[in-house]
Every structure is written in C-alpha cells, then in structure tokens.
C-alpha cells in the first residue's frame, strides 16, 4: 500500500492505494467519478483522457501513484457554478455528440489544445483530437464545435 495526495478538479484527496492501481481505476472506483470512460485499456482510444499538470494523459496508462502531488482535471471539473464550460456548450450547440462515450476525452483534449493554442486551424484541431477515437460522429461536427468553442472563449476573455 502507498499513500498519495492528488488534487482532482480543485479538491485535495489523500488515499491509501495499491501500487498496481491505475489512475483510471483510482478516478472511477476510488473517487466514484464515472465521467472518465474506459475504452480499450491500452492507450489507443483516448476515452480515458484526463489532464494531468496541463498535459493530456490516457489514465489507463498512468499508475495512480504516478499522480502523487499532481493536479488532475476530469470531465466533472469542466463545469463551474456558472454552468457548462464553453467547450461543452459548443459540443451541444453543434450537435457533436452521438453515443457520447468518447466525448469526455474529446472535451479534455480540446481543452488542452485550446489552453495552448486558443485559435487553432482545422488541421491543428484534427491533430489535437487524433488520439481520441470516435465510431459514431465522423469527427467533423466535433471539429466544428472546437472551432466554435475557440470563439466562445475569445468572447469570454474580452
């Protein structure tokens, strides 16, 4: 057993965990945050994407102890007291969600991209979400919504 301190969605958690626990299982089973999905479980599909210290990671490929003293954002942390995050709102407005299983990961990849590059080209958006597989949408409306989110966020800053 090992004790870790992790800040997730702004809250500090101290937990005793098994050394072989994945970050994905820590988030879902230990903290009961079920927005993060498990797809392939081997780092190929991006469904379990979370942001750790500003960088997207596949939480199935990170051990929970590696998150010690790190700051993590999951889909549950996107919404605030004002409501949905502009990226989430843009996904709704553009009709970018079909079955929804890839969407938490897509939204977090979009956030990591827009944090670094607030006005990406469509090519840059496609590169930014190329680690997130989607079987339903054909991606185009997701790309549209990230473009729209970029406009929403620019509007917020002004």
């Amino acid at each position: 057993m090992k004790t870790i301190n992790v800040k997730i969605n702004g809250e500090n958690y101290t937990r005793e965990i098994n050394e072989d626990m994945r970050l994905l299982d820590f988030i879902r089973d230990e903290l009961k945050l079920y927005g993060t999905k498990e797809g392939c479980g081997e780092g190929e599909c991006g469904a379990c994407t979370v942001i750790m210290d500003g960088v997207t990671v596949n939480s199935c490929m990170v051990m929970a102890f590696q998150a010690n003293n790190k700051e993590i954002l999951t889909i549950e942390g996107m919404e605030d007291e004002k409501g949905l995050h502009p990226i989430q709102q843009a996904f709704l407005d553009e009709g970018a969600v079909q079955c929804g299983f890839c969407i938490p990961g897509m939204v977090l990849s979009a956030k990591a991209l827009l944090d670094k590059n607030p006005k990406p080209s469509r090519k840059e958006i496609k590169e930014g979400i190329s680690g997130n597989l989607c079987r339903c949408t054909g991606y185009n409306k997701i790309v549209d919504s990230i473009e729209k989110a970029s406009q929403y966020l620019e509007g917020e800053d002004q």
């Binding site: 392939c40 081997e42 190929e44 599909c45 469509r122 958006i125 496609k126 590169e127 979400i129 190329s130 680690g131 997130n132 597989l133 989607c134 079987r135 054909g138 991606y139 185009n140 997701i142 790309v143």
Partner: peptide, 17 residues
C-alpha cells in the same frame, strides 16, 4: 483484435464533407 492493428479512422483521416 486491438486498435494497434485493427485501424479505424481518426480525425486526421476524415475529409471535409
């Protein structure tokens, strides 16, 4: 039987339609 060899399109493979 895994995404490393069963390839499905990513966003980069999709054209504008």
């Amino acid at each position: 039987n895994r995404f490393t060899n069963y390839l499905i399109p990513t966003a980069l493979d999709m054209p504008e339609i």
